[in-house]
């Protein structure tokens, strides 16, 4: 299981990103976060887990355990994978109530750099957030 959502929280990511004063450091950090996210095995990269975007693909696996939701995610693109880590930092290991209550719009806008990334419909990020929220609503 990844450290996102437990050891690395959404607040940590907002704090760290606010230190960087150039785009190169921010993007390097995002790409590094993605590298920390364990890759999904080929079996999990299936049609059911696929969240379709027109530019890159995202796979999301969820599991409910002890009243909490656990997510694993992967993408074929590095920067998107880093963004998935950012999203999992907010949602992984939380109760369905916490997932539902989380202000994801506020989070994205606090992550200033990600503003335009998060609204790009092509990268599948919005669709993944929606799927996480739907999972919480169903549990």
């Amino acid at each position: 299981m990844s450290r996102f959502g437990t050891e690395i929280t959404s607040d940590d990511i907002v704090d760290t990103l606010s230190f960087f004063d150039n785009w190169e450091d921010r993007y390097k950090y995002i790409i590094d976060l993605g590298k920390e996210l364990p890759p999904l095995n080929d079996e999990s990269r299936n049609e059911t887990n696929l969240v379709r975007g027109c530019q890159s693909q995202v796979w999301l696996v969820s599991e409910a355990r002890d009243g909490k939701l656990f997510f694993e995610a992967d993408s074929d693109a590095f920067i998107v994978k880093g963004l998935l880590a950012v999203v999992l930092a907010a949602y992984n290991g939380k109760t369905p109530e916490q997932v539902t209550a989380f202000d994801v719009e506020g989070y994205f806008s606090a992550l200033n750099l990600l503003k335009h990334l998060s609204v790009t419909r092509g990268n599948g990020l919005r669709a993944m957030v929606k799927r996480i929220q739907d999972t919480a609503a169903a549990n």
Partner: peptide
């Protein structure tokens, strides 16, 4: 070795507008 979407995002940061994807 690089996904087109990643390349596009990094070009945009440098002021170069291209299209990526299918």
């Amino acid at each position: 070795g690089a996904h087109p979407n990643d390349v596009g995002l990094l070009l945009d940061q440098q002021g170069v507008a291209v299209r990526t994807g299918n």
